[in-house]
C-alpha cells in the first residue's frame, strides 16, 4: 500500500490503507508489477493490434467450437451458452482494440500519446525510450508476452482437433462411480419396443440395487475398451464440468456368439440384459443380445 499512498491518497490525508503499510511493500511491488504500468497510466493497458488479434483469434475459436459442436468433446453440452457469450465478448474486445489501432492511424500508441510523440519537441523523449528491447513502437502498449500462449489452444483446436477421451484414459482411471444416490430407484418402464434406454452410469448405479434392472432389456451406448474374444468393457465417461474431471462408468459386456468383436475405441449401441450378479468392482456384467457399431455420438459424455 505504500505505493499507493503518495500517489493517490496522500495529499488529502485520507490514506485509508496507510495503516496496512508493509515494511518493504514498495520495493516488492516495484520489482514485480509496479513499473510497467505505474508510470504510464492507462495507456499501458492498451493491448495494441497484436493483442487485438490474439483476442479475436481466441474469441472466434471459441465460437467456432460451439458452431461445429466439437466443444462437446471437451466440456458439458450445457456450456454452450456461456461459451457463446464468452467467445462473443472476447472477439468484441479484440475488435475494439483493432478498431482503435486503425483509428489511431496505424500508430501503436494511445491516440493522446501519438499526438504527443508526433510533436517534434518530443523527439528526444521518444529516443530516450528507444533503449527498451521492444522498441519500434511496441514497447508502449501493455501486451503481455505470455498472451501469445493463448494461440496454443486455438492451434490445437484447429490442427489436432482431439477427440473425446477414449480407452487410453479409461484404462488409467480408477473406475469410480458415485455411490448409489436416491435409493430405491423408481421402476423402469420399457418403451414401445420393449427396451429401456439408460445411461451407462445409471446402469452401474442401479446394479447395486439390482431389483430394478432384473428382467429388463437395456439399450446402452458407449465405447469399447480392451476387447478380447467376445468380451469387452463398455465404457462411457461421466463429466461434471470438463474432460479434466472425467470418470469412467463401465460394464463388462459379453457379446452374443458369432458377432465380430468391435475394435477398441469403437462406439457401439447394444441391447443387453443384466447378468444378475451384484457388482464387485463397480463393473456390473451385461450380456448383449445385439450390437451395432455407431459413429461417435454428438455428446460423447454422460453427466
Amino acid at each position: 500500500m505504500t505505493t499507493q499512498a503518495p500517489g493517490h491518497a496522500g495529499p488529502d490525508g485520507h490514506a485509508g490503507p496507510a495503516g496496512h503499510t508493509e515494511p518493504d511493500g514498495s520495493t516488492e511491488a516495484g520489482g514485480h508489477a509496479g513499473p510497467g504500468r505505474s508510470g504510464e497510466g492507462f495507456r499501458a493497458e492498451w493491448v495494441g493490434p497484436l493483442g487485438g488479434l490474439v483476442l479475436l483469434v481466441v474469441g472466434i475459436t471459441c465460437l467456432r467450437l460451439v458452431q461445429t459442436g466439437a466443444y462437446t468433446s471437451y466440456v458439458r453440452v450445457g456450456m454452450r451458452v456461456p461459451l457463446l457469450a464468452a467467445g462473443a465478448l472476447v472477439a468484441l474486445l479484440g475488435v475494439v482494440a483493432l478498431v482503435r489501432y486503425a483509428r489511431s492511424g496505424g500508430h501503436d500508441d494511445h491516440p493522446a500519446e501519438a499526438a504527443v510523440k508526433g510533436s517534434p519537441e518530443n523527439a528526444p523523449a521518444a529516443t530516450a525510450g528507444a533503449g527498451d528491447p521492444g522498441q519500434s513502437g511496441h514497447h508502449r502498449h501493455g501486451l503481455p508476452r505470455v498472451a501469445a500462449l493463448l494461440l496454443l489452444p486455438a492451434a490445437v483446436a484447429y490442427l489436432v482437433a482431439p477427440p473425446s477421451l477414449g480407452a487410453f484414459s479409461a484404462a488409467r482411471a480408477t473406475v469410480t462411480v458415485p455411490a448409489p444416490r436416491a435409493l430405491p430407484y423408481a421402476p423402469l418402464k420399457p418403451g414401445p419396443d420393449g427396451t429401456v434406454t439408460l445411461p451407462l452410469r445409471e446402469v452401474v448405479e442401479r446394479a447395486y440395487d439390482g431389483r430394478t434392472l432384473a428382467g429388463q432389456t437395456l439399450r446402452v451406448t458407449g465405447f469399447v475398451v480392451s476387447p478380447a474374444g467376445g468380451r469387452l468393457t463398455l465404457t462411457r465417461f461421466v463429466i461434471r464440468c470438463c474432460a479434466a474431471d472425467a470418470e469412467p462408468a463401465a460394464v463388462n459386456l459379453t457379446l452374443p456368439p458369432g458377432v465380430e468383436t468391435p475394435a477398441e475405441n469403437a462406439w457401439i449401441t447394444v441391447l443387453a440384459r443384466w447378468d444378475g450378479v451384484p457388482p464387485s468392482d463397480d463393473r456390473p456384467g451385461l450380456v448383449a443380445r445385439s450390437l451395432e457399431v455407431i459413429p461417435p455420438p454428438a455428446d460423447p459424455y454422460e453427466t
Partner: peptide, 16 residues
C-alpha cells in the same frame, strides 16, 4: 491425444 483433449477441456471450461 488425451493430453490435447484435457488441455483444450481445461482451457475451454475456464474461458467463460
Amino acid at each position: 491425444r488425451a493430453w490435447c483433449t484435457v488441455f483444450l477441456a481445461v482451457t475451454i471450461q475456464a474461458l467463460p
